[in-house]
Nucleic acid binder design. Structure first.
Length: 209
DNA sequence: GCCAGGATCGTCT
DNA sequence: GACGATCCTGGCG
C-alpha cells in the first residue's frame, strides 16, 4: 500500500500518527476500537468510543468557537480534555483537518498493563471497574485537564494499532449515551461482546452479525 | 439487583 | 444562575 495509506492504517502494534486522525471523525471513531492507549505504566485497549462532529447539537463545538472548545478546532491527533459535572475529566481525540471541529470521545478501555497502578488510583479492585466509563479511564490513566491540547502521538501518550485478536475485533454501532441532544444518532461504537464497555449494549442480543 | 439522588465547578446565558 | 458527553452510595425489594 502507499505511504499515505500506511499512515492512516498502521500495521499491528505500530504507533498512530496525525494522518490517522486527519479524516472523517466517523471513520476515526470505529478505527480506534482495538487500539492500545498508554500513559506511562498504565495502558488499556480502547473498546468503546463516540463520534461528535461540528454539525452535531451534542458536540461542544456546535455553539461555535469558545475558549473551552478551542482545541476541537485545531489540528487532528490532539487530546481534548474537559471537566464534566465538575468532577470527571473526559478524554477526546480530535479528528479531521485543522479548522474542522470534530472529536472522538474515548468511553471505555479494557485494562492491559499497569493494573495495580490503576487499582490504586481508582481505589477499586475489580478489573471491570477500572476503565469502564469515560470518567473512570481518565482517573485510572492519570489524565487530567493539564493534558488538554496535548499531542496524542507524543509522550506522555502512546497510541498504537491493534495487535493479535484485536485486529479481528468486530465493531458494532449504536446510539450514544449520557447526552440530551441528538440522542438518535448511531455514533457510538464498541467492540462486540466486550465486557468492559461503560454500559451494556442496548441490543446486546442482536449486536453480533 | 435496581433506582434515585447527591457531589461539585467551569462555562455560557 | 443553570446546566452537564459522570460516578458512587445508600435504600429498598
Amino acid at each position: 500500500m502507499s505511504e499515505a495509506a500506511a499512515a492512516i492504517a498502521p500495521g499491528p502494534g505500530e504507533r498512530l500518527t496525525m494522518a490517522f486522525f486527519d479524516r472523517s471523525v466517523h471513520e476515526v471513531a470505529p478505527a480506534l476500537i482495538g487500539c492500545e492507549l498508554r500513559v506511562g505504566e498504565a495502558a488499556g485497549v480502547i473498546v468503546e468510543t463516540e463520534a461528535y462532529d461540528a454539525g452535531d447539537p451534542a458536540c461542544h463545538a456546535y455553539v461555535g468557537r469558545t475558549a473551552r472548545n478551542e482545541v476541537l478546532f485545531g489540528p487532528p491527533g490532539r487530546a481534548y480534555v474537559y471537566l464534566s459535572y465538575g468532577i470527571h475529566s473526559l478524554l477526546n481525540a480530535v479528528a479531521e483537518p485543522d479548522g474542522s471541529a470534530a472529536a472522538v470521545l474515548i468511553r471505555a478501555l479494557e485494562p492491559s498493563d499497569g493494573i495495580e497502578l490503576m487499582r490504586a488510583r481508582r481505589g477499586r479492585a475489580e478489573l471491570g471497574e477500572l476503565c469502564s466509563g469515560p470518567g473512570k479511564l481518565t482517573e485510572a490513566l492519570g489524565i487530567g485537564l493539564e493534558l488538554n491540547g496535548a499531542d496524542l502521538t507524543e509522550p506522555p501518550f502512546e497510541l498504537s494499532a491493534p495487535v493479535g485478536e484485536w485486529t479481528r475485533t468486530e465493531v458494532v454501532s449504536g446510539t450514544r449515551i449520557g447526552i440530551t441532544k441528538a440522542v438518535e444518532l448511531p455514533w457510538r461504537y464498541c467492540a462486540a461482546g466486550n465486557r468492559h464497555v461503560s454500559r451494556p449494549w442496548p441490543a446486546q442480543g442482536r449486536a453480533a452479525a
